[in-house]
C-alpha cells in the first residue's frame, strides 16, 4: 500500500506537538493572566486616562494632591473626614474647597466648576479610582487604627497631580497582608505620612505592633466572611 503521508509530515506533526501546543497553551495562559491577574487590566498607574472631575466640565483643572498635600501640606483628614471613623474615607463636599477658594484664586477658570457647584447646589462628580466590587466589604477606620498607613494601599499620594491606582486590588493582595500584617504595619504617628519607608528591622517592629494592637491571627483575618459578609 502506498503511503498516504510522506516522511515530511512526521516533522510537521512533531513540530505541532512540541512547538505549536506549548505556544497555544502559553498564549492562553498569558491571556488569562492578563485579564485576571495583571496590573494593566486594572489601570494601575494610569492617571491620564481619567478626566477628573467626571464629564467634560469646561475649564476644569481637576484637583491636585501634589499641590494641596505635597505643596500646602494639608492633612488627609482635612478632606477625607471619614478615614478614622467610617468605612468610607469620604470625598470632601464642595463646601470644603470653597472654604479656601472663596478667597484663594476666586477668579481662576480652573475653579469655575467648584464655584458653579456651590452656587447651583449641584454636586461635583469624581471618577472613582480605587473601586472594589460591591460584594466586598472594606473599612478604612480599622486599617488606619491598626497601623496600616494610606501609602501602603494608595502609594505616595502627595506626589500625584492626578490620583492613580498603585494596587490592582485583587483579593490575593488583601490576603497577602491579612496573612502577615507585620510586613506592613507602621507606628500610629506615620499613618498619614505618604513617603514612609519601612525601617531595616520592619519584621521585628511589625510583630511588636501586631501584639500591641491586638491584631488577630492570620486564620481569623482570612476568614471569608470578614470581607464577604
Amino acid at each position: 500500500m502506498a503511503q498516504v503521508f510522506n516522511r515530511r509530515t512526521n516533522t510537521i506533526v512533531r513540530l505541532g506537538i512540541f512547538v505549536g501546543v506549548p505556544v497555544i497553551l502559553a498564549l492562553l495562559t498569558a491571556t488569562w493572566w492578563y485579564y485576571t491577574r495583571s496590573d494593566w487590566v486594572r489601570d494601575v498607574g494610569v492617571a491620564h486616562a481619567k478626566v477628573q472631575p467626571a464629564g467634560n466640565i469646561p475649564g476644569a483643572g481637576g484637583y491636585s494632591h501634589q499641590l494641596h498635600v505635597g505643596g500646602l501640606k494639608l492633612d488627609c483628614r482635612y478632606c477625607h473626614t471619614g478615614v478614622e471613623i467610617s468605612s468610607n474615607a469620604n470625598i470632601p463636599p464642595t463646601e470644603t474647597c470653597m472654604g479656601c477658594h472663596a478667597q484663594i484664586l476666586p477668579k481662576s477658570t480652573k475653579l469655575e466648576y467648584i464655584r458653579n457647584s456651590y452656587e447651583k447646589d449641584e454636586p461635583v462628580q469624581w471618577n472613582k479610582v480605587n473601586d472594589l466590587p460591591k460584594f466586598v466589604y472594606f473599612n478604612h477606620s480599622i486599617h488606619v487604627a491598626k497601623g496600616v498607613g494610606c501609602s501602603t494601599c494608595h502609594g505616595n499620594i502627595a506626589s500625584m497631580a492626578v490620583v492613580y491606582k498603585t494596587e490592582a486590588l485583587y483579593m490575593s493582595w488583601c490576603l497577602n497582608c491579612h496573612r502577615a500584617p507585620e510586613k506592613f504595619l507602621r507606628p500610629q504617628s506615620e499613618i498619614f505620612n505618604t513617603a514612609w519607608t519601612p525601617p531595616a528591622d520592619q519584621i521585628a517592629q511589625g510583630l511588636k505592633l501586631k501584639k500591641d494592637l491586638n491584631i488577630r491571627t492570620s486564620s481569623q483575618l482570612t476568614n471569608c466572611s470578614i470581607c464577604h459578609r
Binding site: P93, Y118, P123, Q125
Partner: peptide, 19 residues
Amino acid sequence: PQEVIVPYVRQPEQVIPGR
C-alpha cells in the same frame, strides 16, 4: 464600569458617609 463618587455640596453636620 467607571463609577463616580458624588459628594455633598454642603455636608449636613451629623452625616458621616458610610455610617
